[in-house]
Design a protein around this nucleic acid. Sequence first.
DNA 1: CGAGTTCTTGACACGGGCTTGACCCCCAAA
DNA 2: TTTGGGGGTCAAGCCCGTGTCAAGAACTCG
Lengths: 229, 229
Amino acid sequence: MSNCPRVLVVDDEASIRKFLRVSLSGHGYRVLEASTGAEALACARQERPDLVVLDVGLPDLEGFEVVEQLRRWSAVPVLMLSVRGAEQDKIRALDAGADDYLTKPFGLGELLARVRAALRRAASGPGGEPVRQLGDLRIDLAAHRVFREDREVGLTPREFDLLRVLLQHAGRVLTHRQILEQAWGPEYGHETHLLRVNVSNLRRKIEPDPVRPTFILTEPGVGYRLGGS
Amino acid sequence: MSNCPRVLVVDDEASIRKFLRVSLSGHGYRVLEASTGAEALACARQERPDLVVLDVGLPDLEGFEVVEQLRRWSAVPVLMLSVRGAEQDKIRALDAGADDYLTKPFGLGELLARVRAALRRAASGPGGEPVRQLGDLRIDLAAHRVFREDREVGLTPREFDLLRVLLQHAGRVLTHRQILEQAWGPEYGHETHLLRVNVSNLRRKIEPDPVRPTFILTEPGVGYRLGGS
DNA sequence: CGAGTTCTTGACACGGGCTTGACCCCCAAA
DNA sequence: TTTGGGGGTCAAGCCCGTGTCAAGAACTCG
C-alpha cells in the first residue's frame, strides 16, 4: 500500500483529526496529521503529501496564510474546511490559493468525493506520471521510456508490455501463463517460447550482465519474477 | 480582449443564463451559451472554452451525462450548478468528472471565486503560458501562430489542433485514440490513417529534418509523443 | 459562382518488429 | 553415459505498422 495517496490533515481539534483520519484511512488513503499551521508547512515540505485538508481556524496562523505560504513553492491540492459559511471567507480562501472550500457540517460522502476530484485533477496534470525506480533502472510508464544509468534504452512495444506486466507485480513470481495472457492476450497462454525469446531480448537491453540477471529472474518450472528493488 | 477566458454557460432557463452572462462578462470573461446538453457538447467541441458552468437539470441529457461525455476527450474545468443540495447529487457529479459543485442559491462572489480557482488551477497545469517554447520552436496558442527560428510557419487548423493536443501533454505518450478523440472528435477514435497523414504533414513543416524527427516522436504500436527533453 | 485551400481517402514502398525454427547449454534421471 | 526436458540464444522470413505521395471531395472566401 505504498502508492496510496497521502493526505495531510490539519486541524487543531483532536476529535476532528481523528474523525478525518478514520474516515480517510478507511477509504484507502494514508493520513498525515498536523495541529498547527507551522507544523503543517513543515510536514508538507518534508513529506510532500498528495493532498492537504486544512481547517481555517488554527491557533498560530490563519488557514489563509498557510495556503499562501504553501503556494509559494507547492502546487499540492488544498481543500479547506470551516465552520464559517460566510461568503467572504470562501472567497478569501479560494483566492489565497485553495482548490476547494467545504463548510461544516458536511457529509462524509461529499468530502470523499471532493477529495477524489482534487486528486484526479492533480493526477492528470504535469506531476502525474508514475516513474518507478529499480536499482539503476528507471521506468517512466507514462512516457513509455526506460533508462539505465541515465542512458535511454529503446524497447519495442512488446518488450515494454512485458516489462510493464512484470513491474506491476514486482517482487512476486508470475507464471508463464499469467505473463503471456497479460502481455500478449488470453489466447497466448501456452506460447512459452515467445516469452523466452522476449525475456532474452529484454535482458540483453536492460541487464548489466545478461548472463547473470539481476532484474528479470527465472523461477525454474514456474515463471519469472522482477527483483532488484 | 481576445485572450480573456472563455466560459461556456449551460442552462435551460434563459433568466439564469442572462444572470450568469451579465455577471461573468462584467468581470472580464467572454461568455458562450447553450441551453441543452447536446448543444453544450457541440459548442465545447467547436469553441474550446476555458471553463464550463453547467446546470444539472437540462431538458435532453442529465448534467452528469454531459460531463461524462465531455471527459472522454476534454479536460476543460467543469463547475456544476444545481438547486438540489442532496449529497448524492454532489457525489455523483464530482465522480462523473466535474471539478466543483455549487448549490443554488449561491452568492455571486463565491461563484466568481470558484471560477477563478478553477481557471487558476487549469492555467498552472499543462499549457501554462499561452506562448510556449520547445527548442527553436515557439507556439502561441492564443494567437494560433507557430514560429521556427523566428520564421512563421503556416499551419492549417487541423495541424494546429494536432500540435496543441500534443503540446498539452508534452513529454507523455498519447495513444492514437487519445489524439484523435481530442483533436478530431470522440467519433474519430479509430481513424489512425488520418493521424498518420497529418503527422507527416506537420513534421514537414516544423521539423528541421522530417526524416529524423526531434519534436513529434513516434512511439511504435502506441502513439506519439511531443519530445524536447 | 468560381478559385484556392484544406481535408479525406486510397495506393504503395519501406523498415523493423514479431514469430518461428534450429541449435545450444545445463541438469537431473535412467 | 545417455537421454530428455526446461531454458536461452541466434538468425531468417513474414507481416504489420508507419510514412509518403497524389488525387478527389469538401470547404471557404472573394
